[in-house]
């Protein structure tokens, strides 16, 4: 793995991106990595823009925000348009095609998955889309172990929602394993 590894999880308020960032960062902490997780969001609890940055490294991280992403997750069109240009060469782009209809640049490592549609169809709710997409990202990038991801999910969501989120995680992993370009 190349360190520091910079990830941006982006979309709109209410899509659970900050929680996804916390879970990813927590999983990295479980593996004794150095990690920073920062975020930016508007005043809206629902809607508006929102993103979480996670930097994972094997040494001290000074500047805490992602500048040149090794991986970008975009759950809506605006964030895809806005942040795509900061994806580094050979970086990985993951988009939710439920909302992202155009990708402005040709990116070699692009994964296009209708995460929200699948969540509604398979899990009965769009809410666990964040965990599903995060699990997909982890499977594709290998940035943390799946066991760490699972433990981080269990430590981060309310007990009543652990089961749903673990099913979302499983679904995300399967989607990544079976992904065909």
């Amino acid at each position: 793995m190349k360190y520091p590894y910079e990830i941006r999880l982006s979309g709109s308020g209410g899509q659970g991106l900050i929680l996804a960032g916390i879970i990813l960062a927590r999983a990295a902490v479980l593996e004794n990595h150095h990690v920073t997780q920062t975020q930016s969001y508007g005043p809206e609890s629902r809607g508006g823009y929102s993103y979480a940055d996670v930097i994972i490294s094997n040494e001290d991280i000074y500047f805490p925000e992602a500048v040149s992403f090794d991986c970008l997750l975009a759950l809506n069109q605006e964030s895809c348009d806005k942040y795509l240009f900061d994806l580094r060469e050979n970086g990985i782009l993951i988009v939710d095609t439920t909302f992202v209809k155009n990708i402005a640049l040709v990116v070699e490592n692009t994964y296009e998955v209708p995460f929200t549609e699948i969540a509604i169809e398979k899990l009965g709710s769009p809410i666990p889309t964040n965990i599903m997409a995060l699990a997909f990202l982890v499977q594709v990038t290998g940035i943390v172990k799946l066991a760490s991801l699972q433990q981080a999910i269990e430590e981060s969501v309310k007990p009543a929602f652990i089961d749903l989120n673990l099913r979302a995680m499983k679904l995300g992993i399967d989607l990544a394993k079976n992904y065909e370009k």
Binding site: H33, T36, T38, P64
Partner: peptide, 9 residues
């Protein structure tokens, strides 16, 4: 602000 909201190990 960034530090207040930032998470680290």
């Amino acid at each position: 602000e960034v530090l207040g909201h930032m998470r680290e190990a």
